[in-house]
Design a protein around this nucleic acid. Sequence first.
RNA 1: GCCCAGGUAGUGUAGCGGCCCAUCAUGUCUGCCUGUCACGCAGACGACUCGGAUUCGAAUUCCGACCUGGGCGCCA
Length: 430
Amino acid sequence: MRIPIQAVHPDIGEAEIIGWVHEIRDLGGLTFLLIRDRTGIIQVTIPKKKATDAVLAAVKAVSRESVIRVSGPVKPIDKAPGGRELVPELFEIISLSASPMPLDVVEKVPAELDTRLDARFLDARRPRVSAVFQIRSTVTRAIYEFFFSRGFINITTPKIVAAATEGGTELFPIAYFEREAFLNQSPQLYKQMMMAAGFEKVFEIGPIFRAEEHNTTKHLNEATSIDMEMSFADHLEVMKVLEDLVISTYRTVADQCGDQLSALEIRDFAIPEPGFPRLPYPEAIEIAKKATGEDIKYGDDIGTVSEKAIGEEMGAHYFITDWPTAIKPYYAMPYEEEPSVCKAFDLMHPRMELSSGAERVHQHDQLVHQIRAKGLSSESFEFYLNPFRYGMPPHAGWGLGEERLVMTMLGLSNIREAVLFPRDRHRLVP
RNA sequence: GCCCAGGUAGUGUAGCGGCCCAUCAUGUCUGCCUGUCACGCAGACGACUCGGAUUCGAAUUCCGACCUGGGCGCCA
């Protein structure tokens, strides 16, 4: 019976392991193999004089990164990594690895991201890479648990759609039988429609597609969006939910991913402090203006340089609130007393935007008016507008980028590090 | 899309008109080695992105294409 390498202790006497050959050190009369599975690494020691011919022949034939099965007694040895070693009685090559390999799993020689992504299956054998995706898995589970524990209903919405969600972003066109369709940029319209269905609290974690030709370390053409929508809630309430979710996700990772954080050499993993500061948009651009010396006017978008400058000033997670209605989507609710400002917010990490959300317009006529004010045609939104005629409750929600959450949490320099098979301007394979 | 920097063995690099049938490391192969832990030692193998131009001579200069990284824009 195979046991995980992490569970191999001298007390258990004998063990059978299956794993990849991490390193081979042949000293002549003595050969050391390091064998790796996803739980850890163990040394297998083969003394030439005591080993059987079958074992010696297999050890001679095996190459690095081959899959092997080894069984034999486990011995406590101070000199071995982990304080124990396995001396094989049986040594079977299950799957021989070819050489040379596209990259060095042991990381004696670094590999560039592009090389790594081309051979992602090998790259992901590296403990530090594997750790990122184990943590991302924990993040996903923590988020599902967070929403379920608060009574949210999980929904799935179509990724093949007939038209744009918000305008603004480019869509990928696809052939849908005899018609043209698009990959959805956001579940926004569908999650709002479920407010009209009376679901009250919904969430979805799923892919979104943006055909923007951006070329940066924080954009993807296929990303994972964590979306929620809540009836009878205003923007302030859903901001609190967002803050709680971020903190509880960090806490779960801190509690459950100690080994993975060590593998990433993250020693000072800090859980964000509750009470994220709320920075009104006019104050945000003031900070940006002072820090960058640029002439930023009210109503301008906050560019990358400004975003960084404000992030440095704030130093931790914060919200930007009270955005000009003109630069937020048509579905953001303007303040009654000052309609040029709306109840939209962005959740910022000092490095970048993580989430944006808003209280939504729930009155049909106002929504039509705002769609037209953005230069969009309300006819193509008929499927979306219809529910607003038949008792749409007030509601609010947000969308949070999962890759950006993981990237900022782990200090990854490139968002592609947080995706197994990233899709960007140039990469479609693997 | 724009700007900048690049593209040299499987990987990561040095070289930047002749000292280059190209440096170093890692890797692979062969040999030696019984406590390695980035094992060591000896030997071998393996590369100038593609196309054009300049030149007596191009990895090196110029032009074009393709590809990569970073910054910006757009965007979340």
